[in-house]
Design a protein around this nucleic acid. Structure first.
Length: 259
DNA sequence: ATGGCGGCTCAAAGCCGA
C-alpha cells in the first residue's frame, strides 16, 4: 500500500497538478497540507471521481489538511488535542482496516514557527509537545501508525544544503530539535532516513533559483510506529514533480507498506 | 555578482510562507 504526504500550497492553484500526480503515482492514501480553503470549497468531487474517499479539515486562506483514501475511513478525527483555543487547521487522522488488521494515519501541518522572537515560536513548540502527547497515547495501541506531513523541521545537517545558514531558524533550532528528539524517542522512525544516508530534499524555495541550484531542505516526513516501520518496504521522494509546470514548493513523499 | 516567488484575499497591496 502506498501512503503519501504532500504540501500542495493551495488546492485552487494546484488541482490539475495534484490530479496528474495521482494518476501517475497511484497512491492509496494521501495527506495534503496547505489546502488553503474551507471544507465547502474543497474540490472533493474531483478526487471522488478518481476513486478516493475524501476528508478535510479546512480553514479560510491558510493552513488546512485533507486525507484522500482509496480504502474507506473507519473513523476520522480533526484537530490536534490539547488546546481548545487552537483554531488553526493543521491535523487530521483516520483509522483504516484491512484483512491484515487495522492501522492509523495522521496528516499534519506543523507550524513554521518563524520568527523565533514572536508568539509563533512558542506556538510551534507547544504544538510539538501536544503531538508527542497524542502519539504517546496512540502507541499504547501497538498498531501500525504513520504520522506524516510537513513537519517544518530539518532533522540534521545533511537535510539542508547550508546548515550554518539555517541554524537558529525555527526549522533548525535547538528548541525545535529538542521537541523532535523527544518525539522520535517514543519509538518513531523517520522513514526516509531509515532507508538512505544521502541528502534527500523535499522543499525548494520559489525564490533565489533554489530549485535550479538544488538549494533544498528535507522537512516533509513519514514518521512510523514500530509496527509501521516493520512493514515499510521502501520510500520515495518524487522530486521530479518540483520541475513540473505550476509546481508546489514541496514534493510528494511516498511510503510503500506491506499492509 | 547578487537577486531572484507565489498563493491568498472584502481584489490592492499586504499578509504569509520557509
Amino acid at each position: 500500500m502506498k501512503i503519501a504526504t504532500w504540501n500542495i500550497n493551495g488546492i485552487k492553484a494546484r488541482l490539475e497538478v495534484v490530479k496528474h500526480w495521482l494518476e501517475t503515482a497511484q497512491p492509496d492514501i494521501v495527506c495534503l497540507q496547505e489546502i488553503k480553503t474551507i471544507d465547502e470549497n474543497f474540490p472533493g468531487e474531483a478526487f471522488e471521481e478518481m476513486g478516493y474517499n475524501v476528508a478535510t479539515h479546512g480553514q479560510k486562506s491558510f493552513n488546512g489538511v485533507a486525507l484522500l483514501s482509496k480504502i474507506p475511513f473507519d473513523e476520522v478525527n480533526r484537530g490536534l488535542p490539547g488546546d481548545d483555543g487552537d483554531e488553526q487547521a493543521r491535523f487530521i487522522e483516520a483509522e483504516f482496516s484491512t484483512e491484515n488488521g487495522a492501522f492509523r494515519v495522521a496528516g499534519i501541518y506543523l507550524p513554521n514557527g518563524n520568527p523565533v522572537d514572536s508568539e509563533k515560536f512558542p506556538y510551534k513548540l507547544g504544538w510539538m509537545e501536544r503531538l508527542t502527547a497524542w502519539t504517546r497515547e496512540q502507541l499504547a495501541n501497538e498498531e501500525p501508525l504513520v504520522i506524516m506531513g510537513d513537519y517544518n523541521l530539518i532533522p540534521q545537517d545533511i537535510d539542508t544544503h547550508d546548515p550554518k545558514a539555517w541554524w537558529g531558524d525555527a526549522l533548525y533550532h535547538p528548541e525545535s530539535l529538542s521537541r523532535f528528539r523527544t518525539f522520535e524517542a517514543l519509538g518513531m522512525t523517520d522513514a526516509v532516513r531509515s532507508t538512505t544516508a544521502e541528502p534527500a530534499y523535499t522543499f525548494w524555495d520559489f525564490q533565489a533559483g533554489a530549485w535550479r541550484k538544488n538549494n533544498g531542505i528535507r522537512i516533509d516526513h513519514l514518521m512510523l510506529s514500530p509496527q509501521a516501520a516493520d512493514r515499510l518496504n521502501g520510500v520515495n521522494i518524487h522530486r521530479d514533480v518540483r520541475g513540473w509546470d505550476k509546481p508546489s514548493d514541496h514534493v510528494p513523499v511516498v511510503g510503500d507498506f506491506a499492509f
